[in-house]
Design a protein around this nucleic acid. Sequence first.
DNA 1: TATTGTTATACTCTATAACTATA
DNA 2: TATAGTTATAGAGTATAACAATA
Lengths: 152, 152
Amino acid sequence: MPSDVSATQVGELLQAAARAFSQQGLARFGEHGLSPARVRLLTTLHQRPGSRMRDLADVLGVSGRAVTPVVDALESDGLVARTADPGDRRAFRLTLTDAGLATIDRITELQHRVSEEIFGGLTPADRAQLGGLLRKFLVTVSREPCPQNPAD
Amino acid sequence: MPSDVSATQVGELLQAAARAFSQQGLARFGEHGLSPARVRLLTTLHQRPGSRMRDLADVLGVSGRAVTPVVDALESDGLVARTADPGDRRAFRLTLTDAGLATIDRITELQHRVSEEIFGGLTPADRAQLGGLLRKFLVTVSREPCPQNPAD
DNA sequence: TATTGTTATACTCTATAACTATA
DNA sequence: TATAGTTATAGAGTATAACAATA
């Protein structure tokens, strides 16, 4: 088993696994009116309360433009609120409303249920091992993504 | 219960890992004009030469409607060809052209390179273990797409 | 009647570019 | 000049529904 074949296969398996997870898991979220982009923004905001939109765009890895319509929708649904940044009048600080926090609870509960369902075929030991390897992978990836642009 | 926390965490890690892989890997494919949907169709077709569009839709897990524009684009780029199905005059058999096969080679080469890059931080043993766990996961998932397990 | 693939239409998500109002 | 966020516009990808030709 040559190692480069293994790397390619791992990549394909990772994609396939994520696809299966998305299709079963996130499709379930759709029943509750929770699209992937909204869930990602809500949970990210929950982890970083008071974030500016710019910061969220960076953390989410999308353009600033992509954040506006998602926040618009969440705001009109009463889940997040834009509040003026006292230190920078160009920026907004985003906060979760009570309804937003309740939605986070529902998301968390859904995530638990879906994860239990979809990973139910793995033993706890397998899950722990898989989690550990994925975490290790993420650490190595985020350490050297493609970091040689600060020269410009 | 540590096990349900673990399941949730594994789900999050899986999503994060796939996201990192997509952003680094598939973004690289974009430089070659290869969008994810086209790559998926080409590689799937390569594995199942002569597939009908309906079969591809099923294998890819998308609606039949979603296949048409992708095939249109690939056909107009000269990578795939629609040929009449001798046994069913409603259907098309899709085949890879020579240019399509050359593109498969480029995709394969790119996948190798990207996978080696992105999984370079893992030891071969880690990769093998990760691949094995992902494969196991996929088997259990595809066996019970919608499990009814109200035990928990 | 059921199925293959198409057209028509709409939705989600994201990107680039131009604009404003600040900094 | 540079940055935060918006508007305008565009594109990929996918869904549902109605339709054609064929089974």
